[in-house]
Design a protein around this nucleic acid. Structure first.
Lengths: 257, 257
DNA sequence: GATAAGAATTAACTTGGGTTAGTGTGATTT
DNA sequence: AAATCACACTAACCCAAGTTAATTCTTATC
């Protein structure tokens, strides 16, 4: 958390992070921006490894990560956990709460995290009034789905080393997208048991995989920071292709009258 | 295919199947229905095990399954395939084509299949004019994402037997939703290698898993038909909970002015 | 009804990753 | 500076699932 000092938090909860993300993808008119930013948001501050939403909870608010790191996960009867996605600052989580009524998965933090929540009904009303936003929300949902597909491939068909390598590549890319690091260095705010939960492996085997990658000079770690030493090598190992992250934004000017 | 005779195909491609699906979830006004059904659709007839879309293809049309069965999949360099989802008659596939430009996965048939395609720009224009439809498309995308999440759990954390059992339960439910079978019997239009691709297993191990389930009197098979003998038992084995299929439709009357 | 092709099944053997039960190690707390 | 805690790391052993390859069984097709 050293990179983003607590002093950066304004007292008034603002949704600037998400707007910044939208603007990277397509132009947003000033009116839309004003309307979105005037949503009444509530800030929630959570400690590390805290449940924010539990599976089965009724949900009526959508949430954004302002600062920190959260994951969405499902659990098995035997306690096994599968992490489904990670959400970095500026990400909207639980956009689905706007249309679905019950959470089919949990959300929890991995570091001290600040979350902003907005009433789902406000999001829907806004989507009805500003087609630009409706499209942006839909696009967000589509990218979400694309990432889930890639994760299904990851845990379904890749070897342990590939799975861990792929996760590291994804995180490096996504931290880069939000302006942290250069696509090679990023703060790995996860313990090895978390990586295991995300990759469908045991913590012990995650450790073995990380050591293999260090031994092959693909990555280096110093404390919580990861540095990708050999980008091509790691990408080759992971069969990583960043297209599924859809950094380019939605199709433009789609209306043909 | 015996259940749905080829004669059921009208000569004019119609999108009735999808409309029927939407109407199960929420009321659709007659005008919206007319507007949707007047979309210019093209029908494509495909043989069994044919690629319809290949990974990396530029996509500018959205497609619906009229009759048959298709899957979306990703492939590995070594030829390994991971099926990401199945699509039954009435399902919209590649709704994401309306906003994303390149397919990040392939689509192929498993039996002779008839597909209807509509220009992505027409879909977007319609979504802009009929908020009802925009919401329906978004909801569809959310349910899609929910199914991908469940599949990630399936291949990431469940045992081989559980994975296969879970897939059978999902298919039984979905065929039931579209009025085929009673939730116990359904046509399994997949070879064991397909099940392997969907569950992240080898075909041999799928065979072992199926035999286990037959031995435990959980399922019975006759040719391509599967009958679930012990619904509770299979659900328990699979840890199946149908909520992720969201049969209930989207949140109603969400607008609060 | 012979032939061929496509699937399902079986068996023998291998292996990647899980499990258990530890031992470091560096940060906090007292 | 001892004690505690959380996490990283190791080693020994095990097993679920993969691999290969041969053998039925089914289904089309001629």
């Amino acid at each position: 958390m050293a990179d983003r000092p607590m002093s950066a938090f304004s007292d008034e909860p603002t949704l600037d992070g998400y707007i910044a993300k939208l603007e990277k993808r397509s132009e947003i008119s000033p009116e839309t921006k004003v309307a979105f930013c005037s949503l009444r948001a509530q800030r929630i501050e959570l400690a590390s490894h805290q449940d924010f939403i539990r599976e089965g909870d009724a949900v009526d608010r959508c949430s954004f990560v302002e600062e920190g790191l959260v994951s969405r996960y499902k659990t098995m009867r035997d306690g096994g956990r599968q992490i489904l996605s990670f959400h970095l600052p500026g990400d909207m989580i639980d956009l689905h709460a706007s249309l679905l009524l019950v959470a089919d998965h949990g959300v929890r933090t991995h570091v001290p995290t600040s979350i902003l929540t907005v009433a789902a009904s406000d999001i829907l009303a806004l989507a009805a009034d500003y087609p630009e936003l409706a499209r942006a929300f839909w696009f967000d949902t589509l990218v979400d789905a694309a990432i889930f597909r890639e994760w299904t491939l990851n845990v379904g068909r890749r070897s342990a080393r590939q799975r861990v390598a792929h996760l590291l590549m994804e995180l490096a890319h996504r931290y880069n997208q939000i302006g942290e690091g250069d696509g090679r260095r990023f703060p790995l705010q996860l313990i090895q048991a978390d990586i295991a939960d995300a990759t469908g492996l045991s913590a012990v085997h995650v450790n073995r995989s990380l050591q293999y990658m260090r031994g092959e000079r693909l990555i280096r770690t110093q404390g919580r920071m990861v540095e990708i030493e050999d980008r091509e090598g790691l990408a080759r190992l992971a069969e990583f292709d960043d297209r599924y992250l859809h950094p380019e934004g939605p199709r433009q000017h789609p209306r043909i009258d």
